[in-house]
């Protein structure tokens, strides 16, 4: 089974699961509230003993075929079922658990979390600008105007209809950053691709991204 990790407040993860179900895949969404179900387990150094507790039941680690992480962090706002006074602490505990759990699983995870983001990466706009600069591309980390997003999956811009120069620039930057899944933001109307930064959560809910992600998992 494929798992999509995301916030219940974000429509992208549920749109992705609907796309994948239409494609005939077994998929379940995991939201922070699911971490308040009995059945989650991480035994450090023993990934085969990891389990996930879903609405559908408890899933053993080896039965997870792959995970898309579209959740940067668990926030207190994700946990309305927790007493308000405890929400901030529980959110930190759940984030910490997911960081370790996602890092230990043997199955493919796009993208593996880092210590600063459960969706992988977590660089600031200034750090993205430094990467663009190293690739000879323009960047405006303080840009405040309109932007256009380009989601890169597995080395290619997922949306084939986006401008070719922009798609190539996005693929170059994602590769330089070592990201398999990222939504990069470029300044709208710039004469040449001008990187503004990256979304904290990748845009995974449109058909093209869903197809590209399935293709990525099938190639693992």
């Amino acid at each position: 089974m494929l798992l999509v990790l995301g916030s219940a407040l974000d429509s992208e993860p549920s749109r992705l699961t609907r796309c994948w179900r239409r494609a005939g895949r077994q998929v379940a969404i995991v939201t922070p509230a699911d971490l308040s179900r009995p059945g989650w387990r991480l035994r450090c150094g023993r990934p085969a003993e990891s389990t996930a507790a879903l609405a559908e039941g408890v899933l053993a680690g080896p039965d997870i075929d792959g995970i898309v992480s579209a959740l940067a962090v668990v926030g207190p706002y994700d946990l309305p079922h927790i007493a308000e006074i405890d929400r901030a602490y529980v959110a930190q505990e759940m984030s910490a658990f997911l960081l370790a759990w996602l890092s230990e699983l043997a199955c493919p995870v796009i993208d593996r979390p880092t210590a600063v983001s459960l969706a992988g990466c977590g660089r600031s706009a200034f750090e993205w600008a430094a990467i663009a600069d190293q690739q000879g591309l323009r960047a405006e980390p303080l840009w405040s105007g309109e932007t256009v997003g380009v989601t890169v999956v597995g080395g290619r811009a997922a949306d084939g209809s986006c401008d070719g120069t922009l798609a190539a620039a996005a693929a170059t930057i994602a590769a330089a950053a070592g990201r398999s899944l990222v939504t990069l933001r470029f300044a709208s109307g710039a004469a040449s691709p001008t990187l503004v930064g990256a979304d904290a959560r990748p845009e995974v809910g449109h058909e093209a991204a869903a197809d590209a992600l399935l293709d990525w998992f099938d190639r693992q």
Binding site: R43, Q92, A115
Partner: peptide
């Protein structure tokens, strides 16, 4: 920020780390 995450890195560096369950 995550003790069990860090434990993985501690083991990778060659230290023994306590058996841990979350």
């Amino acid at each position: 920020r995550s003790k069990p995450y860090q434990l993985g890195q501690i083991r990778a560096a060659g230290f023994a780390a306590p058996d841990t369950l979350v």
